[in-house]
Design a protein around this nucleic acid. Structure first.
Lengths: 107, 107
DNA sequence: TCATTATTTCAAGTATTATGGAAATATAGA
DNA sequence: TCTATATTTCCATAATACTTGAAATAATGA
């Protein structure tokens, strides 16, 4: 995974509204959530929410699917996992690491 | 772990120079690295490097120790792991998750 | 103490980002 | 087609962040 992509993903998550949005989507799982639901539950104005969702989609951390009048946003678990993995890669030059495992989601 | 702390940590990592610095420190492990070494190996001006290191220290992702004329910076693995864990917490409402493990470093 | 090396702080300029209001687009149903 | 709902886009403003050059601080050794 390229460092530029990782920076983009981290930047997308490094903002309180977006982190909340992403966390909501992670918890929601495969069902996903609509902007309306997110806007209401998080108390974010629809245009601001749209801006942040776009940011997350551009970072490939979230996917978008239209179903009728609604849009469904979902967390992209594989991309999230790749970003997490990047941070620990080659940790301690491979030595002294007891585990290389935890906090990955395989939904 | 509080969301504010996580945002701060993610913001600290969401910048190409800092991500490189942090990755170098993660790879270096317990030995740590001095600003001189980092500045040379990454090609970052010393004052710019200092700015970014401070950012990482403030986010608690990196620790600082003085040894004689040199400062030694080290990755804070526990904090990094906590941040990674935050992102996957309660993933998919607990259902359908095969593993809750990977990409954590236990140096 | 003085000079040197290591590192940080300060100030300033530019660029990027977040937010809000208003308007535009898309879809569905009457 | 008309209307309502859902969502996005556009624009302007305010705040924040990155980088650079110059100066300051810290620690060591001569």
């Amino acid at each position: 995974m390229e460092s530029v992509v990782v920076v983009k993903a981290l930047a997308a998550l490094a903002q309180s509204s977006r982190l909340e949005i992403f966390r909501s989507l992670v918890v929601a799982g495969g069902t996903g959530l609509t902007p309306s639901v997110l806007a209401e539950s998080l108390g974010i104005a629809p245009n601001t929410l749209s801006f942040h969702l776009k940011e997350l989609v551009h970072a490939d951390l979230v996917s978008q699917e239209r179903i009728g009048r609604n849009l469904i946003y979902r967390a992209q678990y594989d991309r999230m996992n790749a970003v997490l993995g990047y941070l620990t890669q080659n940790c301690c030059q491979g030595q002294a690491c007891l585990i290389e495992a935890a906090s990955r989601c395989d939904c």
